[in-house]
Design a protein around this nucleic acid. Structure first.
Lengths: 152, 152
DNA sequence: ATCATAACCTACTTTACAAGTAGTATTTGG
DNA sequence: CCAAATACTACTTGTAAAGTAGGTTATGAT
């Protein structure tokens, strides 16, 4: 009997970021229709409530959502769903879109092992890759998640 | 006096993967011209030698490079540099190109918090994002790193 | 044959962060 | 003033990245 165990580790979007997108989508469905409470969003989207609290707070500090404290309070979207892209949310929670720090626009950092950045062929090529990802991630917005597929 | 400390965490390519690409590029420059030793590649590319050993071994197991043991041995490329894409190397070391497991071609996994995958708008949109990244990462090869910019 | 050299392989260490949990403070409507 | 909700801080647990350490095996040269 052979037991095969496949453990695969991958670098992907964090759950925090994914939950944020789901929460924003839920709020977008309620755009200009009052507010929703953390507990409700958590239940509807299968997100741990206390974890979601932190996420909504971060979204508030990033001025994507607004809140109302006290009994009967909740969260609401303050930006148009069409103006919140996946790129925006990804940068907020997971950081750079580029695969290398020396290629990042918003999170640039020099590579320690690089001798001459100006002639670095990797940098040149990874800029192309970044642009491929960045364009798509900027094009897809929270609004993309609430419209149905054929209403493209 | 205000001290501001910015700590930014980002999800990027692992160093292992980056080092692998650099090592492959170095071997590609020597394609069909004999072999290079770990120590030399390590020195030329500023990669910790023992770490590079592991990486070259993984590349060997993935049949991208070949090796010769014993004194005067070393590593050499066995695939054409044009046929080793960034996507290939990335998948080997860092896993999925897609940002969500349910969107990955090679590392698919169901999302626990998803109720109905067929009607999931996020999945539908993230496939587009994956394709943006995947196309670019498949187009850029080790050969891209050794040619100069205007010889496009 | 044996020695130096370089690949091959496994295990360990350290650090850091993701993914949450816990508990308290603050605001606000009734 | 009380209940309900957000606001905030701190802690926990597990796991992976990045590298280190040390030994084994193969091979060309002496």
């Amino acid at each position: 009997m052979i037991i095969q165990l496949f453990i695969i580790f991958t670098i992907m979007m964090s759950k925090k970021c994914k939950y944020a997108l789901k929460a924003l989508t839920r709020l977008a469905k309620n755009f200009n229709k009052g507010h929703l409470q953390t507990a409700d969003i958590a239940r509807l989207e299968n997100i741990p409530k206390k974890f979601l609290e932190q996420i909504l707070l971060e979204l508030k500090h990033a001025r994507m959502v607004g809140s109302k404290q006290g009994s009967g309070g909740g969260y609401f979207l303050i930006k148009n769903p069409k103006e919140i892209s996946v790129a925006d949310v990804y940068r907020l929670f997971d950081g750079a879109i580029a695969l290398l720090p020396c290629v990042s626009i918003n999170f640039y950092e020099r590579c320690e092992d690089c001798t001459d950045e100006k002639s670095c062929a990797m940098q040149r090529e990874f800029i192309k890759i970044r642009e491929g990802a960045r364009k798509m991630m900027s094009k897809v917005t929270i609004h993309s998640f609430i419209k149905d597929s054929d209403s493209q």
